[in-house]
């Protein structure tokens, strides 16, 4: 039990919380046809995080957030410059900027020597949730011991905070988000600005991306922003049900994915373990495959 609490619980919680926050905002990315935004976001913030770390010498949340937001803002300005002033085709502008930013991030990681200390290109790409540990845990009563709880890995607090912010905004602005997602023209006629709500969706996605990136890696973030919402969309027409289902699938992916990656091989006595972040993403993809094959909303493409 103690080793489960010390090693498995924190890692499983990290993966699952990241899955939840990404899936939650992912619903609105999928509905507004911006599914690739998570992918672009995961790529462009990398140089910002590296530069912020090199300048400040710490992986504190606010330093990482500041660096990531600066990088995202810079990229957005660069894309706008290429599109509007230079006249580059929109998807080419986006594609060239996000690959260049990621390349810059990789190069900075390698050149600054950061690679061998705190981060690693592999951790950013693959995710490494297994490093989240809780050494203070000693049996079940630690779950109620505030001193022990205080030594939980810091990324758990970060992810829980992000989840709370995203959830709060979505609950407060649910009506606006729904009408903009399904019918932006109608939204305009009743005085809701699709531009403002669109910007809000992007900002929340950026928040989710930044806090997930450093703890679970790009791949889990991209998968969770699209797979659970897509799975849920194959099962229902109702947005509220879709959001709740997507959270359920994110939770299931996190728990089952971690169990398959780490606990299952152990139970069979194998020394190998699969990368947990990758396995969680694959499980989410398999849920989506099942929903696409057997869900009630397959067949002819429908719109709501």
């Amino acid at each position: 039990m103690t080793s489960f609490l010390q090693i498995d619980l924190p890692a499983m919680l990290t993966g699952t919380l990241a899955a939840l926050v990404c899936a939650l905002i992912g619903n609105f990315l999928v509905l507004t046809r911006q599914s690739m935004l998570g992918d672009a976001m995961g790529h462009v913030v990398l140089p910002g995080i590296v530069i912020a770390f090199v300048l400040a010498g710490t992986t504190a949340t606010w330093v990482m957030l500041a660096g990531a937001f600066a990088a995202a803002l810079f990229s957005a300005m660069l894309v706008e410059f290429l599109r509007r002033i230079a006249g580059v085709e929109p998807s080419a502008a986006l594609g060239s900027v996000f690959t260049a930013m990621f390349a810059l991030g990789v190069l900075l990681l390698e050149q600054s020597g950061v690679a061998r200390t705190s981060f690693d290109v592999h951790h950013i790409l693959f995710g490494n949730i297994e490093t989240a540990i809780w050494p203070a845990a000693a049996g079940l009563r630690s779950l109620f011991d505030t001193a022990a709880l205080a030594s939980l890995p810091p990324q758990l607090g970060r992810l829980a905070f992000g989840l709370a912010v995203v959830a709060l905004v979505i609950v407060l602005l649910f009506k606006e988000l729904r009408v903009v997602s399904f019918d932006p023209d109608f939204a305009r006629t009743i005085g809701i600005s699709p531009r403002m709500i669109g910007a809000l969706i992007v900002a929340l996605a950026a928040l989710a991306a930044v806090i997930s990136l450093s703890s679970v890696g790009v791949i889990l973030l991209v998968a969770m922003m699209v797979c659970p919402p897509a799975t849920a969309r194959m099962l229902t027409d109702d947005l509220k049900t879709q959001v709740l289902l997507s959270l359920l699938f994110a939770l299931a992916s996190g728990v089952f994915g971690y169990a398959i990656a780490v606990l299952l091989p152990l139970a069979f006595g194998y020394e190998i373990s699969f990368g947990a972040a990758g396995t969680i993403a694959v499980v989410a993809g398999l849920f989506q495959l099942a929903a696409m094959l057997f869900g009630p909303k397959r067949g002819i493409p429908r719109t709501v």
């Binding site: 791949i219 998968a223 897509a230 990368g275 990758g278 993403a281 397959r298």
Partner: peptide, 25 residues
């Protein structure tokens, strides 16, 4: 399916890449 092309691209990218990473580990 009812899913749009951007969702198709993003989910295929993520799932295949994740599978590759699991195989690498």
């Amino acid at each position: 399916t009812r899913l749009t092309e951007d969702t198709a691209i993003a989910s295929v990218l993520a799932t295949f890449f994740a599978l590759g990473i699991v195989m690498l580990t």
